[in-house]
Structures are given as structure tokens and as C-alpha cells.
Design a protein around this nucleic acid. Structure first.
Lengths: 333, 333
DNA sequence: TCCTTTTAGTAAACCGGTTTATTTTATAAA
DNA sequence: TTTATAAAATAAACCGGTTTACTAAAAGGA
């Protein structure tokens, strides 16, 4: 009774051939008579036939699959990005294959490898710092890649990023104007990830132009809160209004907590500003100023660009710079 | 020069047959001589051959793909869940295919459909309220399904959930003991989603036992903050210490904000407790008490159970109840 | 030396579709 | 009525692997 239902079965039952059924499935109905089409349609319905995307991909040479590689799905930037991507992808009939790199090149490379084997039609990647190392691997597949927040040097050079440089300069200017005389820039070891470079470089440069001093504090994912508090104790001069600028989004909660002992000095003597649209920044007390990146929109654009490339269209600009918005809240004056 | 490199090419270059190469790839090296194996290995390396998982899946009848369907990837429970799933899946050589349902049955059904066509080996689903509607569809594929926080009635009956009932009763008891004389239960329209039923039912039941009055306030995703504040104004009697219990995790920030006018009455006259490990609850002022579900762990368990089912093992219990932990913070006494 | 068994290796069918080239049937033109 | 042309339908090759069933060569036993 319950033969596995394949295209062959449909052809047999409806008294036609595989070819005809295949044409029907792909909407090439001009090539067949009304009745044939109808008969096939009926058989498909009553059998509950479900064409195998696997088989289809194999012979058609496209899988309608998009590989998405991000650092960490629990990061708010990343999941908003993914949400944006998915919105567009699903509309266009594509499915997402998602992997986290954990910000590790090795895992990133493995993810790329697995996805290539699965035959994805293209990639959207939020690169780790050493993305260059795997660029050639990704190139060898000749699949289009759109990178997020990092101008990659892949042949087609497709990317979406935010105007970190501008946003950061604007922030520096406004914060200086607001009366902060000194700055503290908190960043992870400044690697080659372009986002980090832009943010750090732009901020420092602008401050130099404005003639405002700035110290740099390096921190890492496992820097302890006490350690940080001590560093603040040492560098924050009660007589000089100082603003902390946190470059890495994951560091912002850490810094916020380490700043608790100085709470009543915020925002007058101490200011705090960081990155990304993290929900808690609007709930904390004081609420925390932040530069928002439109992650969701970035995702949508990235996906549109990628789809253009995959389907050989040419509608979207292959690289786009989106505007950040600065939200000044209670943690800065 | 650059012929596309397939198994056939490898066979040709190494002077063997497809069969032998295939055996080699699948580690059936007992069936061949040392030298042959080595020769193949070399050819694979210098050509950079990458076997097509697509073709492999088609003939091997498994895809090493797991379909994950969640409500919304930007929800913290969901992304922690996914992270847990991915950890286990990748270890076992599986890849994730993720779709969001947007808590909509129709989209959920479409996602299931697409994933079946892609030949996933199994599903992990965080069901919408009306999951029953698509259970039969999912069953028709005869693929194993593990559901999250909802005992589905699929044949194999595999699920992972948290002990909402117990946790909620414990909370009710402790909060009563702490001196709250009245309660306000805030929930979305109580549907058939078992989590919601358990939380609501258990809490009300326990309060009845403890002889504490409880009013129910129904809210939805688009209830306005002012509306909510007004409702509180009306129902919160300054003479009776009252505790708000928020059933739906997405409603907690909403309620928190609507409660701002009463801020200085927290936690003494007004208490607040809700669900899930949302980052902001630890940063707000007051910090907010919450019942944490171990989403990450749930994901890991769910994935192990699914893998067992897929690979015909029998190591994990096919359904598991995980413990919630109650974090009492500044918003309750 | 001849026969049996083991080892190493391969041809061919299959998985479920797409696509090209070709045939059959219907319709129009001569 | 015959022929040219268009419309409808199909056979067969292909996509890139897995697997079953079979063969050739080497080793072991009598």
C-alpha cells in the first residue's frame, strides 16, 4: 500500500511520465494540456506527495540554502541579525543553515566546510578577527559571500556594515561638548577586525582633534569585575569629568557592574557609553547610553544582496553602509 | 584543468573505482590494502576534494540535519535553547536548520514542510499553542520529534520540559510566607499551551490552598503601558501587600515599565516576579526576581534524546523534567 | 598440483529528482 | 489527401554519492 511516494509514483498513478510531472512541479505548464496538469495536481494532493529537496538540489545545482555564520547566537546583535536575514530568506523561498563560530577561527572554518558540503548557495558571515585565513577556502567554492561589519576582500566584495567611524566621531564630539574633559577607552586587544579598528581609531582621532586626553584600558572576556573596579579607582580623577567608552558590546555589562561603586557620580563626574541595542541598557539605573547598530536591517540588506548574487540579479548595491543612531540616556550628561 | 572534483574524478586519478573511494570515505578501510588507502588519501588532499553531502544524503537516506523550530530567535529562552542544541549537534556531526514560527501555526506548518523536503533526520520544536494541528503532518514523515515545554502526543512521545508546576507552587508559598497577602496574576489569554496552563494552574491552586486571594489580569503583546498602569492603580490597595506574578516572559519588561510610578513601593507594598533568565532583570533597579528555566540545558537534553532516536540508541530517557531555579532579587521581599 | 577460502577490488543498480534530445500526436497549410 | 508545423509527452542521461552482488587474485589446505 504505502509505497514511498516519489515522482515516479506520481507519474505512474497519473498515467504520465516523470518528465511531465517534473515540468508541472516547476510551473512549466505551458508545455502540457489542461487536463494532464489537473490530473497530476489531483494525484499529488491525494497522495500527499512531497518532492525531495535533496534530490532536486543535487540535479538542479542549487539548494535554496543560505549558510549563516555568526559568533554567538545569544548575542543580541547576532540574533537580531539572524532575524532580519530569515525574514528576507523565507520570503524568497530559501532556508537558513546557521552555525556559531564562538569567535574561533577553527570552528568558523569547520562551519564553512560543513556548509559547503551541504551545498549552500551562498554565505552570510559575521567574521572573526582572522577571517582572512579562511577566505580562500570560501572562495574555492565559488559561492557568493556577504560579510557583516567587515569589508572582506572576496572577489565580488559584498558587504554590509554600519558607519562606526562617523558615529564614534559624533559621539566624541557631543560628549566633549557636554563637558567631559577626559576619556577612557575600553577595548579588547585591538585585532584586525575592522569594526574594532574603526571604532577605536575614529574615536581616538577625533579626540586628538578636539584636544581631549584619552587613556586606553585593555580587557578580555575573563577580566574580573574587581580588577576592573580597581583600574577605575586608579584612573578616575574626581576633579576631572571623565567618560568611559566601551568598544566591545559584550564588555558593556561587565563595565557597568564594575562601575557600581561609583554609581552616584554618574553621569556628572563619570560618563558611560557603549555599543549595541542591548535590552538591559534601557532598564538599568541609570539607563545606559549606547550607539545602536541596526542589526535587523543589516541582516535584511545582507540577505537581499546575497540573493541578488545567487540569482544573478543586480538590484542592490553590493556593499552598503548603514547609519548607527546614538541614544543618549542617563549615563551621560 | 579544473574539472569539478567528484568521487569519480578521485577514482580516476587514483586509479581505483568509485566503490573503493566511497569505502575509504566511510572508513571501511578493512576492505582495502594499505597502499590503496594511502594513494586515495593523497589524491583527496591534493585535489581538495569535498564530498557532496547532498548526494550522500540522497542515497544514504539520512542527512545529518536537525530541524529546529522556535517562536522567535531574539527571545532569550529561544536563543539559549538553540545554543544548547547546537553544542551537542555539532559534536555529533549534525548541522542545524533553524526556522522561526513567529508563534504562528501557519508559519510553523510551513517550516515543518520545508524541513521535511530538505530531508532533516528529526525535529526539535518549541510548539505554538496549536501544535496539535500540525502534529499529524509531522508524524506522516515518520521522523522523530522532541518537543520543548509541551508534552506532545507524537507516537514516541519525546519531550523535555521544566518543572513549572513545582517551581510556581514553591514561589507562591515563599512569597506568601514573605508577607504578601494578595496576588495579581498577569497572563496572556490562557490557551492550551501546557507551560502556560501549568504555571497558571499551579500558582492559583497553591494560593487557594494557602487561602490567599488572587486576581487575574489578561494582557496581550499590544497592551499599552498606560493601560497597564491604570489597571494597577485600580487594583493595588496601598494597605495590602500585593505581589505581581507575570506568567509570560515577554510581558515582564512591559509590566516592569508600567510599574515605574509605583517604584518606591517595591518590594514592600508591591512585589514583582516573572519568568526566564533575561539579562536585564539583573541590571534593573530594583533588580527583578525571576524563575529561571535552564534553557541551555534543555536544548542539550533535547538534542541528545533526538540523536538517540535518530541513531536507534536508547541511552537517554525519552522525556525529562528539568528543575527551574527561583532567583529572589530586589523586587520581592 | 588442485581446490577452497580469504582478500582486494569493481560493475551496476539505486536514491529522486532535472534536463536535453527525440518521438508521438494534433493542427494547420498546401 | 498529403505535408509541414506546432503541441504534448517521453526516454534516457545526468547529478554525486552508497551499496549489493559479483569477479579476480592471492593465500592456505589437502
Amino acid at each position: 500500500m504505502s509505497e514511498k511516494i516519489t515522482i515516479k509514483e506520481i507519474a505512474r498513478i497519473s498515467g504520465t511520465s516523470k518528465t511531465t510531472v517534473s515540468f508541472y512541479l516547476n510551473g512549466k505548464t505551458e508545455k502540457m494540456s489542461r487536463e494532464t496538469a489537473q490530473r497530476i495536481q489531483e494525484v499529488i494532493e491525494q497522495t500527499g506527495y512531497r518532492p525531495s529537496a535533496l534530490a532536486r538540489s543535487l540535479s538542479a545545482k542549487h539548494s535554496r540554502l543560505i549558510g549563516v555564520i555568526i559568533g554567538d547566537i545569544t548575542n543580541s546583535f547576532a540574533n537580531q541579525l539572524v532575524k532580519g536575514i530569515e525574514t528576507i530568506a523565507v520570503q524568497a523561498g530559501y532556508q537558513l543553515m546557521i552555525s556559531s563560530s564562538g569567535y574561533d577561527v577553527e570552528r568558523e572554518a569547520q562551519a564553512v566546510e560543513r556548509m559547503m558540503q551541504m551545498g549552500v548557495d551562498g554565505f552570510i558571515v559575521q567574521p572573526t578577527m582572522e577571517f582572512e585565513k579562511i577566505e580562500k577556502k570560501i572562495q574555492s567554492a565559488a559561492k557568493p559571500v556577504v560579510s557583516i561589519d567587515s569589508q572582506s576582500r572576496t572577489p565580488r566584495g559584498m558587504w554590509v556594515k554600519t558607519n562606526n567611524d562617523e558615529a564614534v566621531r559624533e559621539a566624541a564630539e557631543l560628549l566633549s561638548a557636554a563637558g567631559y574633559e577626559k576619556f577612557l577607552l575600553l577595548t579588547a586587544e585591538p585585532g584586525i577586525l575592522s569594526t574594532r579598528m574603526e571604532r577605536t581609531g575614529g574615536f581616538l582621532d577625533e579626540l586628538r582633534r578636539l584636544n581631549r586626553p584619552c587613556e586606553v584600558v585593555i580587557l578580555s572576556e575573563n577580566t574580573e569585575a574587581e580588577e576592573l573596579t580597581a583600574a577605575f579607582q586608579e584612573r578616575l580623577d574626581p576633579m576631572v569629568p571623565t567618560c568611559l567608552f566601551v568598544v566591545n558590546c559584550w564588555a558593556l555589562p561587565k563595565v557597568y557592574l564594575a562601575l557600581q561603586p561609583f554609581r552616584e557620580k554618574i553621569p556628572h563626574q563619570i560618563g558611560l557609553i557603549g555599543f549595541d541595542n542591548q535590552e538591559w541598557t534601557g532598564f538599568s539605573s541609570p539607563t545606559v547610553s549606547a550607539i545602536h547598530q541596526p542589526a535587523d536591517t543589516e541582516g535584511k540588506h545582507a540577505c537581499r544582496i546575497l540573493l541578488d548574487a545567487i540569482e544573478g540579479r543586480n538590484e542592490e548595491a553590493p556593499n552598503q553602509i548603514l547609519k548607527c543612531t546614538i541614544h543618549f540616556r542617563e549615563s551621560t550628561r
